[in-house]
Design a protein around this nucleic acid. Structure first.
Length: 470
DNA sequence: AGGGTACCCGTA
DNA sequence: AACATACGGGTGCCCT
């Protein structure tokens, strides 16, 4: 740990103690320690960490992780700048053509990027309106994608606006920005914020490499500009449904554990239990609904939100909700206990002891309290996932060091449940199984409740087109 | 000109 | 009146 400055160590300590203080500065350190003497502050912080059961998270996760992240930032990811330049020309041409069509429909030129001006054109000039048109928090008529979708059939301008937004976003966020961030070798070096989130996850900035587009042909073309140099491949490993597995582990729900013990398609298996049918008889629609509920559970969703994501009626959503928790009764109890614990103590903990405090958990204002409860339900799941991936990163980095593999392989990115490496062709066969093995067994068996943790590997020359390993 | 915020949207 | 969790970041627009 010798290459962490004492300031970095103290900042991490403050954040581990209270993750609502993201990116702590010197003032935050003094405030948290209750003294303006740095040495005394460090001692005070360490003692608090000990007292709050946070020593494992601080000493075995956050402190060792810092140098690992530095290695990743230093290595950087190779980008094919010429590919981006070609995308830029292509997309700008398309964007101009779409803008012309929009001006034609509108009868005048205006700033399509301005929600205010766009709203005036759509709602006033063209007189469009949809049922249940939503307002923005500021009271303006919303032009967000989900609202425009409702108006798709009313006027051809809507489709053009949606297409314009997609292209504009990709150009201004990625395609026209990334070339200016490359070093002389064409590599892109992000900065990982280790104390940047309240849940324990990492964040990435300048640029944010954790939100590079991943679906849709236009977005995928951007990923294809991220490459491995000749003689190497990009190799990615992602945890399979890690948060739902953690819900099974943390709750101990017998039925949900069985879903994962039996392997196979988890969403389909959940659908089978939920709808009381044999796994082979699960329809496409039943699986889709089960998947929506699975995701919703992890975020503390209520019936209303479920209705939105299912596109169903309230009564139907309520029925699915009831069926789900009838099928997984212990999971339902666990979620209630989590809220109750958070209300009693003011915080939640992850499987490894990481804490998150909730400001509004005892608020008399119902929706403030409800929001805090949703966060409280999500925090142990998202936070434990963060713990697990970080532990795996530390052990994988140690492997690369111990086996003198730094010249053959480098960890490049962490995208929450996924690790991306650049590995020389002659080392992939040997190394990929070892990385996968570390990731899968990083959670001690006694903590797993017999729920298997599984990892999928992919490799390829381009980030956008990788094929399953094995 | 620069700061703060609203709105929008990409990822897990 | 509320919004399913966690982020970073672009542009517009208002302010100083």
């Amino acid at each position: 740990m010798s290459d962490l400055t004492i300031l970095e160590q103290a900042a991490l300590a403050v954040w581990v103690l209270d993750s609502s203080v993201t990116q702590p500065d010197l003032e935050d350190i003094y405030r948290a320690a209750g003294t303006r003497d740095f040495e005394a502050a460090k001692r005070a912080l360490l003692q608090k960490i000990e007292e709050n059961g946070l020593s494992y998270v601080y000493e075995k996760i956050e402190l060792p992780l810092r140098p690992v992240l530095r290695n990743m930032e230093k290595k950087g990811m190779l980008v094919d700048a010429e590919a981006l330049a070609e995308l830029s020309r292509d997309y700008h041409k398309k964007l101009d053509a779409i803008a012309k069509k929009i001006y034609d429909h509108a009868g005048s030129e205006f700033n399509i990027n301005s929600p205010k001006q766009l709203g005036d054109i759509l709602f006033d000039t063209l007189g469009l309106s949809a049922a249940r048109q939503k307002k923005t928090p500021g009271g303006a008529r919303s032009t967000r994608e989900s609202e425009l979708e409702k108006m798709r059939d009313l006027h051809p301008i809507i489709e053009e606006v949606l297409a314009y937004r997609e292209l504009q976003k990709l150009l201004s966020t990625y395609i026209d920005v990334i070339p200016g961030l490359l070093d002389a070798e064409g590599r892109l070096h992000t900065t990982f914020l280790q104390a940047g989130t309240t849940t324990g996850r990492l964040a990435s900035q300048e640029p944010n490499l954790q939100n590079i587009p991943n679906k849709g042909d236009l977005g995928r073309a951007i990923r294809d500009a991220f490459v491995a140099p000749p003689g190497s491949k990009l190799v990615a490993f992602d945890y399979s449904q890690i948060e739902l597995r953690l819900a099974a582990i943390l709750s101990g729900d017998e039925e949900l554990r069985a879903v994962f013990r039996e392997g196979g398609d988890a969403h389909a298996a959940v659908a089978a239990k939920m709808f009381g049918v044999a796994p082979k008889d699960v329809t496409h629609d039943q699986r889709r609904r089960a998947k929506a509920v699975n995701f919703g559970i992890l975020y503390g969703m209520g019936v209303n939100a479920l209705k939105e994501s299912l596109g169903s009626t309230r009564a139907e959503a309520q029925e699915f909700y009831n069926q789900y928790f009838a099928a997984f009764p212990r999971l339902a109890e666990y979620l209630e206990e989590t809220k109750a614990d958070a209300t009693r103590t003011g915080y939640t903990t992850t499987l490894f002891g990481r804490r998150r405090y909730f400001e509004g958990i005892r608020s008399p204002i119902p929706y403030v309290r409800a929001a805090a409860e949703r966060m409280a339900v999500n925090a142990p799941l998202q936070g434990t996932q963060a713990d697990i991936v970080k532990l795996a990163m530390i052990e994988i980095d140690a492997l690369l060091e111990r086996e003198h593999l730094r010249g053959h392989a480098a960890m490049l990115l962490q995208i929450h449940d996924e690790l991306l490496f650049e590995i020389r062709d002659d080392a992939i066969q040997m190394l990929a199984p070892q990385i996968k093995e570390i990731m899968e067994r990083i959670v001690p068996e006694e903590k797993c409740a017999n729920v298997p943790i599984t990892v999928n590997g992919k490799s390829g020359q381009h980030w956008g087109e990788m094929k399953e390993l094995e």
